[in-house]
Design a protein around this nucleic acid. Structure first.
Lengths: 366, 366
DNA sequence: CACAAAAATGTGCTCGAACACACAAAAATA
DNA sequence: TATTTTTGTGTGTTCGAGCACATTTTTGTG
């Protein structure tokens, strides 16, 4: 009689457990007729488990699709994670300013989870500064580093150092080829060049000339700009019918004024300028000072200087590279990997947002 | 001698605690010279605390900016949260299909946190079905409901019922005025009309005519379409110089063919059509069958039918309303409120994405 | 001053996962 | 058969917050 009661209770317990929503190690232990220690050993493949127990537990884990409670795991874990964000000094290039907002958002959001995010700036014109800052970060032995690899060679080298020290490396905005880097967040630059080209094609007269202007102090952005140029040219290559001639002007920032004026004077038919960096506003300054009109402009990035010109339709379009979102996402991937064992996406390409004076506001709020 | 040792130890413990990164209730108790029970009572304003203890603890909490460990809190809490998502049946209107993807993403992401998200569909043409589904959901007594309030009056009413039952109500895509609704995720529709207008202005000849086409079976979307029309007209109202005449054609879907043909035959100068719903592809069908050419099209939403036409540049632009993101965000806000006590944003307006054939791909991946 | 009532404070258990440690059973060696 | 060694298994503690309950201290009243 007692044994029959026992079996009824066992059955009830089975039914109860099988209809439950979430299973704990304890539940699985009960169902498999072993202790939670054994279940734990199976889950973590620590061995010291008989074949019989192993099979029983494994089968249950699969049937039930057991997912450990992330809260409990993390509570026990009770580790403080350090993440360092390394980027160019926003005071030297305001393109990077929104990154700080993205970082602060992540800092605020994750601080109570025991995540420490620290910011480090290097000079975008100095490889030395890049290396120094990264060496400093290396000494801090954080759990992960998120960086913008402006300088290709040096970035590959620092990534290796980080990996040797067991530090996870993610990058954003600029891409480098390196096995040491687990994640890249950015944009398809070739495609963004094509987007710019299509917009340009739409707003300039047929058979007129358009020019790609590369502005850069030190040509760190060389790869960035090249890819955009390629995309831009690729698009126009498909439209021999309309025959918009595409030329290129590459200048350092300090020579921009002189070079641009000369170029425009010797090419009177220019109807559109595609600026491959965030410095479109500098071009506008020069055009206005010299009374060039009817030249359409397409550029990059929602800097305050550009925003004003977009609002007044002096710049027709800006392509938004979302540095804030890039930073926030790059950090979020790392944090969620640490806290919840989520997989880090090896490559995340953000949308290529077309911004004009009308939808600008909707991007500034976000 | 013993007392001096004691004080040194106390001092050391103070220094240690003040330099620590994260504080626990226990730490604060030690610093305030009380027990964790007292600290707990102060934090939760449960009273039964002397003024002296209250002040000491309060001061410390502020100094330290104490944030409870969300993992521990949630583990103890150990509640399963039920959220119901109520939206129009995607089989009846494919606009809603991406919502399922957004929901699945949220389901996958939060299931191990003890969050249950269930989907419910109603017929977008039947207020009865809307009410029935919501009554069914009401009986399930979930913790929160995220819904698309297609029918204004009925939505206000169901929102009230939910609130009376202590169920949190969030809405997305469509907006209603109701104190019972804690959160809205969507887009500024007036502004999106302006965006469409600016794009249209850019691609049609001066002094040509453009037409706003509203296609709807039952005019549930009336408010939606009206706001878009207002924005569109508002923009063109600012450009009396170019004098693009704007007219409107409102038709039920079944009359579209007849009405549109008639309209276009009696208005030969039409150079652009702005379709205020996701049904731009239906207009294209008709234009192609009747050999209308050189009419530019701007519409909404990345339906597969629209996508093909955008790729081949038959549709010039689509404005992306991101139903997937809207759904995912709406759910995320609720989940993070339950799990981590985060504040739910009362209003979140998503960017008004301009999509053409070149940046289309970058949106489809996301 | 006694003694009850009220107010203040402290203790101990729970949530689920992870892991150290203790202990038992089986296998190998003396 | 007695003993070590190996292999397998179970128990108990920890993480931090939250809450029930126990205990101490204070206050009020006869």
């Amino acid at each position: 009689m007692l044994s029959s009661t026992f079996f009824v209770m066992l059955l009830l317990s089975f039914i109860y457990l099988l209809y439950m929503k979430t299973y704990t190690i304890k539940d699985i232990a009960k169902l498999a007729g072993v202790s939670k220690g054994t279940v734990d050993r199976v889950i973590h493949k620590r061995g010291k488990v008989s074949q019989k127990a192993f099979d029983a537990v494994t089968k249950l884990l699969e049937e039930i699709d057991y997912q450990p409670n992330p809260m409990a795991r993390n509570l026990k874990n009770n580790k403080i994670y350090d993440i360092c964000l390394v980027l160019p000094n926003p005071e030297e290039d305001s393109f990077w300013e929104p990154c700080i907002l993205g970082a602060n958002q992540a800092i605020e959001e994750f601080k109570s989870f025991g995540v420490n995010i620290k910011l480090f700036f290097y000079s975008p014109t100095s490889t030395k500064s890049f290396q120094d800052v990264n060496n400093k970060v290396l000494k801090l032995k954080p759990d992960a580093v998120l960086l913008t690899p402006l300088f290709y060679k040096e970035s590959v080298s620092v990534a290796k150092n980080y990996q040797l020290a067991g530090i996870i490396v993610s990058i954003f905005n600029n891409q480098i080829d390196s096995k040491q880097v687990v994640s890249f967040v950015g944009q398809n630059l070739f495609q963004s060049g094509r987007v710019a080209a299509q917009l340009m094609h739409m707003i300039v007269p047929e058979k007129s000339e358009v020019v790609i202007v590369h502005i850069d102090e030190t040509f760190n952005n060389a790869i960035h700009m090249q890819q955009k140029e390629k995309g831009f040219r690729d698009y126009f290559g498909e439209f021999r019918g309309t025959n918009n001639n595409v030329s290129v002007l590459s200048v350092k920032q300090e020579n921009l004024y002189q070079s641009l004026i000369e170029f425009l004077k010797s090419n009177q038919n220019i109807s559109g300028i595609f600026v491959t960096t965030s410095k479109a506003y500098k071009v506008v300054e020069i055009l206005q000072q010299n009374n060039f009109k009817n030249i359409k402009l397409i550029g990059y990035d929602l800097l305050t200087e550009n925003i004003d010109l977009l609002k007044s339709n002096i710049i027709s379009f800006l392509i938004h590279q979302s540095p804030k979102t890039q930073t926030y996402l790059g950090l979020t991937y790392l944090v969620e990997h640490f806290l919840f064992k989520k997989e880090i996406p090896s490559k995340k390409l953000l949308p290529i947002d077309i911004v004009n004076s009308e939808n600008l506001g909707s991007y500034l709020e976000n």
